[in-house]
């Protein structure tokens, strides 16, 4: 038997031909040169993103506390290529491995956040369950009207991620420290924002969220 079905549909070739026409190319190139205006700068984005994380945490019953917070960035793109001067901020809150495996964190919290985010008028864009050997992964994504995305992902670890969408890159000194939510100690070993504060992170401030950090981080890995 043949290994493959016949070649693909003709419409794709027709569109490809269209795309190669000079006017289409010029539109594409115009888009590449004119990225859309972002809502926030990088420095402005952290506060509403952290507030979004704190708000989500406040809705979670019997919250055990996050283990760590990570600030990171992704290249922002326009016209299909990475654009210098733009970035996407991603803040990740990670539950400890034992907490990541509990039904409360893997199942109940997904249901709670789905209802909570929907009630706030956020658009749920992903609500998926994936069966794997020995565990069930869940993924819930909601987008706020201001473009900030919230992603609750129960995989090996369970995490709450907040993404800014494209923002203009700020000078490092313009970025202000925002204390973490969910029991992560500000400036502690698990507050992974050191890249932005080479002079040191303020460690004497309370977390935004009142939940206590775990008594011990033993057996977390």
């Amino acid at each position: 038997m043949p290994r493959r079905p016949p070649p693909g549909p003709l419409w794709r070739k027709a569109l490809a031909s269209l795309a190669s026409l000079p006017p289409v190319r010029s539109i594409v190139e115009h888009l590449m040169d004119n990225p859309p205006e972002p809502r926030y700068t990088q420095a402005e984005a952290y506060a509403p993103m952290e507030a979004a994380a704190a708000e989500a945490v406040a809705a979670l019953p019997d919250f055990p506390g996050f283990k760590e917070r990570i600030w990171s960035e992704l290249p922002a793109t326009s016209g299909g290529i990475d654009v210098p001067g733009f970035t996407i901020v991603e803040i990740t809150y990670v539950f400890s491995l034992p907490d990541s495996g509990t039904p409360l964190v893997r199942e109940t919290y997904v249901d709670v956040l789905r209802e909570h985010w929907t009630s706030l008028g956020y658009t749920v864009t992903r609500d998926a369950v994936k069966e794997k050997a020995g565990r069930t992964d869940r993924s819930l994504v909601a987008i706020r009207p201001d473009g900030i995305a919230l992603w609750y992902w129960a995989a090996g670890h369970t995490v709450l991620r907040v993404q800014s969408g494209p923002v203009t890159v700020s000078e490092p000194e313009a970025i202000e420290y925002v204390p973490p939510s969910g029991g992560v100690m500000p400036g502690g070993r698990y507050d992974k924002v050191a890249r932005y504060f080479p002079g040191g992170i303020p460690a004497d401030r309370d977390a935004v969220d009142p939940f206590d950090s775990p008594d011990s981080y033993e057996d977390d890995l």
Binding site: P75, T77, S78, I81, E90, T125, S139, I143, A149
Partner: peptide, 21 residues
């Protein structure tokens, strides 16, 4: 928008999860 490089963005968690798997 041109969606050629949005595969790691906040709009494509499905793709990121699969790639991680």
């Amino acid at each position: 928008a041109n969606n050629h490089s949005t595969y790691w963005d906040d709009t494509n968690m499905a793709g990121r999860e699969t790639l991680a798997d």
